[in-house]
């Protein structure tokens, strides 16, 4: 589904990602871990199409399409979802209306009719029920005044509505207390299927107690220095990053 080939990328002319290759298939969950400054965040920004970040060489092929040639809007419509580390607040724009806009953008792309507010409310209610979310998420404005945990939950709600093929969750666990972490993780688990894939970008392994990855990759200084299964994350937990980053 996703094929990253020898990707080099950075911001403001500074190379941060220095040759990453990674292959992700349908139904898989990959965790990308690493210390601060290892390039995790840059990789996420590049995948989501953030205009400030630039890929200098290499390829990213998603479902047969060259992702690097697509802008953020096209990537989203093609089925890539980015769960932001710091979702922005947009006062004045109702959350449900925002979700409907995003949903309808897909309808338009597929040549289908847009969904009116009433029908959309049904869909939204159903997804919110599944994720155990309160009614306030419909009524409030987009992330406006949300706590850190509420913002992350709202990201998962968006993921549920948009049903992406590939989701990228960037530091979704940061700033969450243990209850919020559990709720968010349960939501993500409910959305997993054989047809979609998940990339978890995280500093800590605690998220992986809740969302079990099939593969764990350790990033250091812009490269993947070690790949393994869930056991690798546990080893990192007990021994720290020095263990892998200084190994080579």
């Amino acid at each position: 589904m996703l094929e990253i080939k020898d990707l080099h990328a950075g911001v403001d002319g500074t190379e941060i990602v220095k040759g990453i290759s990674l292959s992700i298939n349908k139904g898989e969950v990959h965790a990308i871990m690493g210390p601060n400054g290892s390039g995790k965040s840059t990789l996420a920004k590049i995948l989501s199409g953030h205009p400030a970040y630039e890929a200098t060489s290499g390829e990213i092929i998603f479902d047969g399409q060259n992702l690097l040639e697509m802008d953020a809007e096209e990537r989203s419509l093609a089925g890539v979802f980015m769960g932001f580390q710091y979702p922005v607040e947009v006062p004045g724009v109702n959350n449900a209306e925002f979700l409907r806009m995003a949903h309808n953008a897909r309808k338009v792309k597929a040549g289908e009719e847009e969904v009116d507010p009433l029908d959309f409310d049904e869909l939204l209610s159903e997804k919110m029920k599944m994720l155990g979310m309160e009614k306030k998420y419909k009524e409030r404005n987009l992330n406006d005044g949300f706590s850190g945990g509420e913002k992350k939950k709202n990201e998962i709600l968006q993921m549920a509505i948009l049903e992406p093929k590939l989701s990228l969750l960037d530091e979704t666990d940061s700033g969450l207390d243990i209850d919020a972490l559990r709720i968010v993780s349960e939501g993500v688990n409910k959305l997993r299927s054989e047809n979609n894939a998940l990339i978890l970008i995280t500093h800590y392994q605690r998220l992986l107690d809740y969302i079990k990855p099939d593969f764990v990759h350790v990033l250091s200084q812009g490269k993947i220095v070690k790949s393994g299964d869930k056991a690798l994350a546990l080893e990192l937990e007990s021994q720290g990053y020095d263990w892998v980053t200084t190994a080579d």
């Binding site: 989501s48 199409g49 953030h50 205009p51 802008d71 953020a72 809007e73 990537r75 989203s76 419509l77 980015m82 932001f84 979702p87 922005v88 947009v90 006062p91 004045g92 724009v93 109702n94 209306e97 925002f98 806009m101 995003a102 953008a105 897909r106 792309k109 404005n141 968006q158 948009l162």
Partner: peptide
């Protein structure tokens, strides 16, 4: 902000619709 518009775009919403939504929200 550019971040707000990027957020909309990353959900498949065009820049034009994003500006319209933010402005009309502000002016509603």
């Amino acid at each position: 902000s550019e971040d707000q518009l990027f957020y909309f775009e990353s959900r498949g919403i065009s820049r034009e619709n994003a500006i319209e939504a933010v402005i009309s929200g502000f002016c509603k």
